[in-house]
């Protein structure tokens, strides 16, 4: 049973999600530690798929481990590393293990990672992968061959309202919704006007599509500069960077910025929750959740 689906479709609760840290070392003990840290605050947490084009313990394996430890996964599948057979195998594997939340993403390019010499696959693109998940939900593989029992995936996707062509992003969100996406995590961004326009446009046409904007907790202006310079698709306006850089207490200024972003996003139409990227800043995360009116274990 997907708690995420129930929360979004049957309640008005605000849904907080996060990203499960990648697993390279520490084994199951590390999985357990991460679960203990995240479970009190989040309804469901992303099990990533070779995030930022770096190899890690696989999406399916981490999703299963999270589930075993009592944290609901949103299993991501990206199109960069797997062809349509492998993508469907991930889906069927998730189904076998009772994993219902899956998120389909196009994925960063291989050039973003530490093995840029690898072959990029992109046999499917994001919207096609979403549609394939819908096909599996109807009880067959892409080929028409039967899959029994059929999955009951709660299908999620990601969109970037902040990247050009801005006007088209709303239509693209609707395309993903038509393909079967019911929840849309939005990428990190620092242009509130673009977010407002996007949410208003989506909510006006497909109000049932749950929007989950992302907010990242940082401790200084350095990561803001990094994102602006090095992460394609993220631009941080100079006045935002300056506001943090020129403050006598950078950590506090960065925190206030994040809190404002959260409050701004939560007030927008169509927004049903937030995705928090915390870079393991535990105290800041607790403070933020507290300031947003949350207490631990509200979803259990």
């Amino acid at each position: 049973m997907s708690k995420l689906r129930d929360l979004l479709t049957q309640t008005k609760d605000v849904v907080y999600t996060a990203e499960f840290p990648v697993i390279d070392g520490g084994g199951m003990d590390q999985v357990k530690k991460n679960v203990e840290r995240l479970a009190p605050w989040f309804a469901a947490v992303n099990a990533t798929d070779n995030t930022a084009a770096h190899a890690h313990a696989s999406n399916v394996s981490v999703a299963i481990a999270m589930k075993q430890h009592g944290l609901e996964p949103i299993m991501q599948i990206v199109c960069r590393d797997k062809n349509r057979l492998a993508i469907q195998a991930d889906m069927a594997g998730a189904n076998l293990h009772g994993i219902e939340n899956i998120a389909l993403l196009t994925g960063d390019d291989v050039t973003a990672g530490d093995e840029p010499e690898t072959r990029r696959v992109f046999d499917l693109d994001g919207p096609q992968a979403i549609n394939v998940a819908s096909i599996l939900n109807a009880g067959t593989y892409l080929s028409g061959r039967k899959l029994n029992p059929a999955p009951n995936f709660f299908i999620c996707a990601v969109e970037n309202p902040f990247a050009p062509p801005h006007d088209y992003r709303i239509e693209r969100a609707m395309k993903k919704h038509r393909a079967g996406a019911q929840m849309l995590q939005l990428q990190i961004g620092y242009h509130p006007d673009r977010l407002e326009k996007f949410c208003a446009g989506v909510a006006a046409t497909v109000p049932e599509l749950a929007l989950i904007p992302s907010v990242v907790l940082v401790k200084s202006s350095k990561p803001l500069n990094f994102m602006n310079d090095k992460v394609p698709g993220i631009s941080v306006p100079q006045d935002v960077i300056d506001r943090v850089a020129q403050s006598s207490d950078q950590a506090e200024a960065a925190y206030q910025l994040a809190l404002e972003q959260c409050q701004h996003a939560l007030a927008l139409p169509g927004v049903r929750g937030l995705h928090i990227t915390d870079f393991r800043h535990d105290e800041t995360l607790e403070r933020l959740m507290h300031d947003l009116g949350r207490t631990p274990n509200q979803y259990t």
Binding site: T106, D108, D125, P127, Q128, N160, K175, G233
Partner: peptide, 10 residues
């Protein structure tokens, strides 16, 4: 990609 731009457009 045949269905629109990725999230990485600069």
């Amino acid at each position: 990609l045949r269905n629109g731009p990725c999230g990485g457009v600069r």
